[in-house]
């Protein structure tokens, strides 16, 4: 146990994390490709046509994993942020900063695919459905986080301020979700759920799961690439960055 703890702290320094992340990135891209191809094949060629919704339902193979990821990434981001505040490790703030754009992208994808799916289903691009509305607010929260970090020049202060905002957001997300749901039922809005299609076949579930894994691997790969860029940016003045082969050229 103590052994693992020491290891962990060793990789918490940007200098040792930078090459480690570099080694991990190709693996995560490979896994993204494997899961993505398998998932797409399953969802487009194997999964049966839905009796009620026809072929259009197939967008859920993108929509649902994107929604999952958008929520999950916010949690991970807040966890990094909390860790950064508690232990004052520099890498934590960089990880949170690296995750935010991917999370925002996922929220945006989820909104877009939701709209694309809504047009044939509800006959409208946008319906004030509880899930879509919460997703929209989550998207705003991501934008707020990114904007706050971008507006503060001192990276340390930006990390800490962002961390506080992420933690406040994570406390608020369940409250917002619950309140939007309550609002939705009171106004008898559209409550057709994407995931609760009447005949959720086994293959569909597998397809969704594989796609979720692909999204997961993609998010990790992109976040690692971004965190490497952030490390380089913030540590340009240090000796070890000056000695990197890629920087020398």
């Amino acid at each position: 146990m103590s052994n693992r703890l020491i290891n962990w702290f060793k990789f918490a320094s940007p200098q040792s994390f930078y090459p480690l992340a570099g080694k991990m990135i190709p693996w995560f891209w490979a896994l993204t490709a494997v899961f993505g191809i398998a998932g797409l094949w399953l969802s487009f060629f194997v999964a049966p046509t839905d009796a009620v919704q026809g072929e259009g339902y197939r967008i859920i193979f993108i929509h649902v994993p994107a929604s999952w990821m958008s929520m999950f990434i916010y949690l991970v981001m807040a966890a990094w942020a909390g860790l950064g505040l508690a232990l004052n490790t520099r890498l934590s703030g960089m990880m949170a900063q690296a995750l935010a754009p991917t999370g925002a992208l996922m929220a945006f994808l989820s909104l877009w695919t939701g709209a694309l799916w809504g047009k044939p289903m509800w006959g409208a691009w946008w319906v004030w459905d509880a899930r879509l509305t919460s997703e929209l607010i989550l998207f705003f929260l991501y934008i707020g986080f990114i904007a706050l970090q971008a507006a503060i020049d001192d990276p340390r202060r930006a990390d800490k301020a962002g961390a506080i905002l992420a933690l406040v957001g994570v406390v608020n997300i369940p409250i917002i979700y619950f309140s939007v749901k309550w609002w939705n039922t009171l106004h008898q809005g559209a409550s057709v759920s994407l995931t609760k299609s009447p005949s959720m076949a086994q293959t569909m579930l597998w397809g969704m799961l594989l796609m979720a894994l692909a999204f997961w691997m993609y998010s990790i790969a992109v976040a690692l690439m971004r965190v490497r860029a952030i490390i380089l940016e913030r540590e340009t003045h240090t000796e070890w960055v000056k000695e990197l082969e890629a920087v020398k050229r």
Binding site: I137, F140, G144, A147, L148, A151, I152, S179, V180
Partner: peptide, 22 residues
């Protein structure tokens, strides 16, 4: 959070208004 930050006023509404939803 936005104290002394560039464009603080607009940023403030971006941060706070979504939290006002409930």
């Amino acid at each position: 959070l936005t104290l002394g930050v560039r464009g603080g006023g607009v940023l403030l509404s971006l941060l706070v208004l979504p939290l006002y939803v409930p």
